[in-house]
Nucleic acid binder design. Sequence first.
DNA 1: ACGCACTCTGATAACGTTTCCTGAAAAGGC
DNA 2: GCCTTTTCAGGAAACGTTATCAGAGTGCGT
Lengths: 348, 348
Amino acid sequence: MKKRGTPPTVSEVARAAGVGTTTVSRVINGGDRVSPKTLEHVQRVIDAMGYRPNQAARVLKGHRTKTIGLVIPSIADPFFSSCAEAAQAVAQANDSLLIVTASHNDPHSELENLNILISHRVDGLIVAPANSQSEALQDLLRRLSVPVIAVDRPVADSLVPAVLSDNFKGARFATQHLIDHGYKRIVCLTGETTLFTIHERMRGYRAAMEAAGMPATLNTSVKDYRSAEYAIQSMLSGPNPPDAIFTLKNSTTIYAFEVLLKLNVPIPKAMALLGFDDFELASTVRPSISVIQQPVEEIGRVAAELLFEQLLGKRGAHAPQKAKRPRMVTLETRLIQRSSCGCTPAGS
Amino acid sequence: MKKRGTPPTVSEVARAAGVGTTTVSRVINGGDRVSPKTLEHVQRVIDAMGYRPNQAARVLKGHRTKTIGLVIPSIADPFFSSCAEAAQAVAQANDSLLIVTASHNDPHSELENLNILISHRVDGLIVAPANSQSEALQDLLRRLSVPVIAVDRPVADSLVPAVLSDNFKGARFATQHLIDHGYKRIVCLTGETTLFTIHERMRGYRAAMEAAGMPATLNTSVKDYRSAEYAIQSMLSGPNPPDAIFTLKNSTTIYAFEVLLKLNVPIPKAMALLGFDDFELASTVRPSISVIQQPVEEIGRVAAELLFEQLLGKRGAHAPQKAKRPRMVTLETRLIQRSSCGCTPAGS
DNA sequence: ACGCACTCTGATAACGTTTCCTGAAAAGGC
DNA sequence: GCCTTTTCAGGAAACGTTATCAGAGTGCGT
C-alpha cells in the first residue's frame, strides 16, 4: 500500500483541520487575519499532511509562475554553465526557479525552446540568440508579453536589452598588447565565424592592427586539432611566418597550444600565444596561457538582475519606463598575463 | 501602444474563429474529430493571434507539467553540468523541460529546493543528495508522490533508484594498476571526506592495498593548493617517501599536479600520479595525466531515462512493478592511460 | 441592554483548459 | 425517402487556488 496517492489539496487540509479553505489559504500566505490559535493548528495539519500548494492553480489565478527560462547553446559549456549558475542564484534570491534549455546554436531549436517556455508561462526569459539577425526570432520577441534579456550576443535592432562582454575592446586590447611587446607578424585564428562574438573580436583585432599599420591576417579554417595543425604548419613553413598567434575562442586556443607543443615550437620565444576567453587550466599548463578573461558570472548575474528589475518594475506604475532602461550593457574584459605571451620573464 | 496585453485565451480564439472552445482545444491537441476545413481555419486564427495554451490550466486539469526537476550541488561544476546536459536532452526527447537548482551540497538548501520543485508539481525529480543519511530527506522522499532518481550518490536504504559510477571498483582498479606497475609506496589524497563517492573510492583504494599486503596511507588534509603543497612536501621529506599518488577527485589531482611541477618532481619517474575523474585538459598538460574516467553523460542520461520510464509506466497498468525495477544502476568506470602513471613509455 | 466596530471565518466565484455528454447534421443502408 | 450510423460541434462541469464579499462572534462604549 504505497503512499503514492494524489497530493493533498486545500479543501482536504481544510476538512482535516475543520476550517474553511479560505483560512487554509490565508495560513499558507503568511497567516494574516487569522487568529494565532487557528494559525498554529492549521499549520500543524499542513505539516502533518505534507501539503504543498499547487503552483499551477496559483498561476491560473493570475500570479507569476516564479520561473524564468534560460536558452543557451549548451549546458555543458563552461561559459554558459557559469552564466546559468549565476542566473540561477539571482532567480533563487527572487524566489524563482530557472528552467534551462539547450539550443545547440540552432535557430530552429531555439525558437521551439522559446515557444515551449512561453507556453509554460515563464515570467521572463534570458536567451543567447543563435542568430542575431533572425527574422523569426525578432517576430517572436516583438509579440512577446514577458521581458527578455539577451546574453553574450545581442538581438538585431536592440529589440531587447543585452548583456555582453566588450568583445571588440577586449580583442583590440589583446592585439595591442602583442603589438606593444614587439611582435611583428600577429595572426588571428578565428575558429568558426558565424557568431556575433567572433565577429566583434575580429573587428577588434583588425582595428588594432590597422591602427599600428600592420597587415591583418585572419585564418578562419581552424575547426579541430587536425585543421589547426595544418594551418599552423603551413604558416610556419610559408614565407614570413608569424611570431604571435591570437586565438578568438577557447577551443581554438587549446588546439593551437597543443599543436605548438607537438611541433616543439617554444612558447613564447618562437611563438607567442594569446587567447580570448579564460579556461580552467590555462594557468596549469606549461607554459601557462595568457588570455582575455570575460566576466562570465557577471554576465549571468547582471542579465538576471535586469530581468527581475523589469519584472518588479512592471508590478508598479505603468509610467514611462522605456526611456530609462539601458538597452545594452557591455562588460569589460580583462587581460590575464601568464607566460604564453612573453610578459612575465619566466617560470610562474 | 505596446502589445503587452494579456496573452490570448481559448475563448478569445474561439470567438475570433467563430467556433466553440472545445473545437479550439481539439485543434491544439492534434485536431482529431475536427473537420479539415475548421481545423485549417482555427489553426490560422491561432497562428494569427499568436496563441499559446496556458500550461498552468492544463496542469490543473490533472495533466503532467512536462517538467522535471534536477537538484545538483552546482551548475558550474563540469561533472554536474554534463549530467544536466544529458538529462535535459532526454527531457526534451520526452517533450519536457528541465528545471535546475543548486544545493551547494547543503542539506537544508537541498530540502528547500525539493519542496519548491514539488510545489511546482514537477513530474519527477533527479537529485544528487548532499547527505545520503539525512533523515529529513528520507522523510520527504517517502511521502513524495512523484518518482525520484538519485545520481552520483544513493539515498540510504535504497529508498529511491540510484545511478552512479562504480567508485569502489574504479578506485580499486586504479590502485591495482599502480601496484602492478611496481610502485611500492602508494598514497591516497582524498580531499574532503564527507561525500559518499569519496568514501567508496577510499574503500576501493584500501581494498586493493590490503589485497596486495601493502599498507594503506590516506591523507585527508588536502583542500587547496597550499595544503597540497604542505602535504606533499612533508611526505617527500619524511621517511619512506611515496613513489605514487592516487587522488580521489579532480581538484585534488590538479593541486597535486601543480605542486609536483612546482617542486620539480619528475612525473612519473620520481612520482606517478593517477586521478579519479577525468577533466578537460588532462590530456593537454605535460605530462598528461592518467585518470579514472566516469561515464558522466551516461549517468545523467540513464537517470533521466529511468525517470521517464517510471513516468510512462505509471500511466499504464497499476500492476506489480516494484519488483522488476532496478534499485541501483552502477556504471563502469574506465582507466585512461596517459603519461603520469608511467604506462606509456614517453611522449604522446 | 443595545448597537457598533472590530476581528476572524467561510461560501462562492473566478482563472483557462480539457472532458464529458448532448445535439445536430451528414452519410449510408434498406 | 426514412431510419440508422457516423462525424462534427458546443455547453457546462471540473481541476486547486485566491479574492471578494458577507456572516458570525467578541468586546466596548453608551
